[in-house]
Design a protein around this nucleic acid. Structure first.
Lengths: 222, 222
DNA sequence: ACTTGTGAAACTTTTCACAGCG
DNA sequence: CGCTGTGAAAAGTTTCACAAGT
């Protein structure tokens, strides 16, 4: 009889908290660089752009990491949170699509814990060219590239029309965590985690705010 | 006696709904391009990557846009939602920082409703060079560039150390909606809307998921 | 004294389920 | 009948406020 309810001891961290962990880690790195050794939740909130109560709640999911009356030890907290987001070792990334944005990402993530180790493109003109720390390979060598480099994260920066095929190819190559920059929802098996970054959406949300601010201003004049 | 509660008739749309509007508009554009004239909430949900009940709830904030028993008219709904996110006219954008990412954005947003009309950089080497549809100007000409082009949205793609100064300069130039790609929280007056896009954060969230999946798998073997 | 960790309240967002209407 | 629009319930998130601990 197989185990259907593993009664996992793994921490179940709210999604909203997970999304803030990278901000805490970076704020702690900035504080550590300045020689700060201890922070209160209020100081860390200030440095990470959050609220003190939120910081304490978020951190409490990982146990009692602070000392009452004193605060949190900067280095120890950075290490503890860094462990959870995997900031203590290298995550090899494969990128599909080496246009302007893909090239920018190859260069931006050529060092550090999140590192592009392979890039493929369907354009023969680009194959063989260097981008950041990698050389572009042919799109049909994706599976080989993933095997050769051990890439576990995938980034899709191809045009909309090619995005689903790129996703399918990544999944077939064994990649189960994908960051998608193409402005279209992707189909993938349930055990594959797809996150979307949608730049036009971000601008549209800003535009929505601008527009409503103007309507409000107009109404005051009416 | 000034009006303290304007009793505004402006729609108060939940933030979560606003963030999905661009996806609906794009899904409707894809459907319209395929010649589809009517959609049910279930079909639109499928096309936009959401749930049917969520689509109906979101749309209901804008009034009764559908017809019971029938569905929504694709063109009319696209126009109505497009109006709200300002997709029907051009939003001029100024971009501060023309590195790899800034260049990619200049090119990506050189057409369409969200359009880069000015770019500045602190490096003298870049001044005068073309990027997408614009020519790079000196950083200290930012206010002039904003005035000349009427830019209302700002994008920050400078290194962390220069991000706050870039933000301050944009605010001083009159820009009140800013998209920040630098991985640091920015200080700005309350009436300025700053949105952050944090690429390392996105990768960290994926890494968190990968890591926990592995821990779960390991526990099953234990 | 000071700050954490956390119950409880408040608020937001999603989902259910069905009345209402074409 | 079929699908929208929406009350109501459920789920998720943030904030308050204070007991607990150093």
């Amino acid at each position: 009889m197989p185990v259907t309810t593993p009664a996992s001891s793994a921490l179940d961290i709210p999604a909203a908290t997970v999304e803030r962990l990278p901000h805490y880690v970076r704020a702690l790195e900035r504080l550590a660089a300045r020689g700060v050794q201890r922070v209160s939740s209020a100081e860390l909130a200030e440095a990470a752009g959050a609220q003190a109560a939120q910081v304490r709640r978020d951190l409490s999911y990982f146990g009692s990491l602070g000392t009452r009356g004193v605060g949190y030890a900067v280095d120890a907290l950075r290490d503890e949170l860094g462990r959870h987001i995997g900031a203590t070792f290298v995550w090899p990334i494969v990128i599909v699509g080496v246009g302007n944005l893909g090239t920018a990402l190859c260069r931006q993530f050529s060092t550090g814990p999140y590192r592009v180790v392979a890039a493929v493109d369907s354009s023969p003109d680009l194959v063989g060219q260097p981008r950041g720390g990698v050389v572009v390979r042919a799109q049909n060598e994706l599976a080989d590239a993933v095997r050769d480099t051990g890439a576990v994260l995938g980034i899709i920066t191809v045009p909309v029309a090619a995005a689903q095929a790129a996703c399918d190819a990544l999944v077939a190559s064994g990649v189960r965590s994908i960051l998608n920059f193409a402005p279209v929802p992707l189909e993938a098996p349930d055990d594959v985690h797809v996150r979307a970054v949608d730049l036009a959406q971000e601008l549209a949300v800003l535009a929505f705010g601008e527009q409503h601010r103007r309507q409000a201003a107009t109404e005051l004049h009416a």
